[in-house]
Write a protein that binds this DNA or RNA. Structure first.
Length: 592
DNA sequence: AAAGAATGCGCC
DNA sequence: AGGGCGCATTCTTT
């Protein structure tokens, strides 16, 4: 049973209703009458906003339902759940109307989706304000992660019920209703996982982080000054390049100094500097010595500015890093994050991520997800055979070797496959493309059709039905401009860029759906098993859990079983495996 | 002075 | 001229 929560349309301000809504799981929505109007909506309960969390806890029992059988329908989970979690309330299932609406509205822009949705009420996905926790340091520590009170601005419960029914109907009319229904459920479950992860936070040891900074940079400098070690390297670089007083932070000045010293590069990017050194032949060693200081400066400067003392002060509170995750924040469906660069915690500081005493971190990394997804989506039997093995790239290389192609070692197989999924047009990966096409015609066909659709200005969809956005006016103008040879070339480049985007979208987006299902399953299984281990971190195809060491064996099993379940949810019995690398460690740095 | 663009690096 | 991001800094424009 679904229960819609929203402000009461008739009661006093600040009073909320819990409204019953029939399930849609069994099939197309049948609960809307011919006019599409819901019934009068007799509320199951009515409480002040402040007591909402208590209601969520108590209502299923009062109705004789198991808590797990209720799907709570909210305007926006991101606005509500932090309060619930602080009150100690968690739920099993959710329907987030704002996330679902965004999926449906994007789908509705694509003629092939079958989706038509006119919102009953607009529910834009609001990005939680990125507040600087340091700015709110004070006696009221608990208020640090307070969210704005969602109560007053939320549409009333009856309106939300009508929106839910309109969404049910839109899903039912889509090309693959069962898949889209799964996507809506998974996206909503993602909101649940995201809120819980932010609430729990990633365990972060300030003392370890500080020791690491001091070792590499020197003691913490006064405000406005470079750390001692960084200053030394800056001065050394100035001397090496014959440019005393050089500020290596200025790319312009640095580039001029480099060129003055005979380093013929067009930018100061490290890969270009390294490539220049490697071109040196007999002089390689002298060249490497010349740029060594520059590279060291860049690495230290990065550590200092991105993850230094200021970062620690800003983002780590009471031993936890609490980033805000944005579910579906990337067009492909991947998550984005705000606050502290959560999705790119650099290897250099991972040692500061430590389990509490008596606890362990479980770091689970899904291997080679995207080519496996591709095999399953395309139903490419040969690639699926490789995807049934632990090391897909190695198996691809074996298949390539027995077929007598140049695709005969693991690293070439990897480069070729990644290149095919990203739309590479140059270098080794492009050269290997014909071999790949011969070995895996179905998989390459899928990618090339997706690319062709994008080049023509069309839209593509993931396996579960997340659609790529329609090209904007600027793109259409650029593509239509044939006025000059330059414009024509620009138009071609724009088309190819769109093709690379749609080509990658189908794979990256479906991989994101797999990850959503994986995490949802992990969370559900942890709760069902009554474990206290929780998810604390997520990056695209890797999760980190934190909990008592005694639960470690059970947690590893759950994480692996959940990966299998995610594969079956998306692809049924397709013979594609999703193997994991699982490390159970005290320090994140020990994983991998 | 503020806002936006460009550059560069980190992650998957 | 290989996809997707966030963030810090410098440079440029308003």
């Amino acid at each position: 049973m679904r229960i819609v929560l929203g402000p009461s349309p008739t009661g006093p301000t600040g009073t909320w209703w819990a409204l019953p809504a029939p399930d849609s799981e069994a099939g197309p929505a049948r609960d809307a009458g011919p006019s599409g109007e819901p019934g009068p909506g007799t509320p199951l309960a009515q409480v002040p906003y402040a007591q909402l969390a208590g209601l969520v806890d108590a209502l299923p029992g009062r109705l004789g339902l198991t808590p797990g059988s209720v799907r709570w329908v909210l305007a926006s989970a991101a606005d509500e759940l932090e309060g619930w979690l602080r009150a100690g309330v968690t739920v099993d299932r959710l329907h987030d109307l704002s996330l679902a609406q965004r999926l449906l509205l994007t789908a509705a822009t694509a003629p092939d989706s079958g989706v038509r949705h006119t919102p009953v009420v607009p529910l834009p996905v609001v990005e939680p304000a990125v507040e600087d926790p340091a700015a709110r340091r004070g006696p009221d520590q608990d208020a640090i992660f307070d969210l704005p009170d969602a109560g007053p601005s939320t549409p009333d419960a009856l309106t939300l019920l009508r929106e839910l029914q309109a969404q049910d109907a839109a899903v039912a009319g889509s090309r693959h209703p069962a898949r889209l229904r799964l996507l809506v459920a998974a996206e909503s479950q993602g909101a649940l996982v995201a809120a819980q992860m932010r609430h729990a936070g990633l365990p972060w040891r300030r003392d370890v982080h500080e020791a690491l900074l001091t070792e590499r940079l020197g003691p913490r400098p006064p405000e406005g000054a470079r750390p001692a070690r960084l200053q030394e390297v800056a001065e050394q670089v100035g001397r090496d390049l014959g440019a005393p007083g050089l500020n290596p932070d200025s790319q312009k000045d640095l580039l001029r100094a480099l060129r003055g010293a005979g380093v013929t590069v067009d930018s100061t990017r490290q890969w270009e500097l390294q490539a220049w050194a490697a071109r040196g032949g007999a002089e390689a060693e002298r060249r490497a010595a010349l740029i060594a200081g520059v590279l060291e400066y860049k690495a230290l400067q990065r550590l200092w500015t991105a993850n230094g003392w200021h970062w620690l002060d800003t983002w780590v509170r009471e031993g936890r890093f609490h980033p805000t995750y944005l579910v579906g924040g990337v067009v492909t469906g991947r998550w984005a994050a705000h606050g502290g660069g959560a999705m790119q915690v650099p290897v250099a500081v991972r040692d500061a991520v430590r389990a509490d005493p008596g606890a362990l971190l479980t770091v689970a990394d899904a291997s080679q997800v995207e080519p496996r997804i591709l095999a399953a989506m395309a139903q490419d039997t040969a690639l699926a055979a490789a995807a049934a093995t632990e090391d897909l790239y190695r198996t691809v290389a074996e298949q390539g070797r027995s077929a007598g192609t140049a695709l005969d070692d693991r690293s070439r197989a990897k480069v070729a496959l990644l290149g095919a999924m990203y739309g590479s047009t140059t270098g080794d990966s492009a050269a290997l493309l014909p071999h790949l096409r011969r070995l895996y015609p179905a998989a390459l066909g899928l990618l090339e059709r997706a690319a062709a659709t994008g080049e023509a200005g069309g839209q593509v969809s993931t396996w579960l039905g997340r659609w790529s956005p329609p090209p904007g006016q600027a793109w259409q103008d650029a593509v239509a401009d044939r006025s000059t040879a330059e414009a024509e070339a620009r138009a071609g480049a724009q088309r190819r860029a769109a093709g690379r985007f749609t080509r990658n979208f189908v794979v990256q987006g479906t991989a994101a759906e797999w990850a959503l299902c994986w995490m949802g399953s992990i969370r559900r299984r942890l709760r069902a098993a009554g474990l206290s281990t929780v998810l604390v971190f997520f990056v695209h195809d890797e999760v980190v859990l934190h909990g008592p060491a005694a639960e470690a064996a059970a947690v590893e099993r759950i994480v692996r079983d959940a990966a299998g379940e995610a594969g079956r949810l998306l692809f049924g019995d397709a013979p594609v495996g999703f193997p994991l690398t699982v490390a159970q460690v005290e320090s994140y740095a020990e994983a991998k």
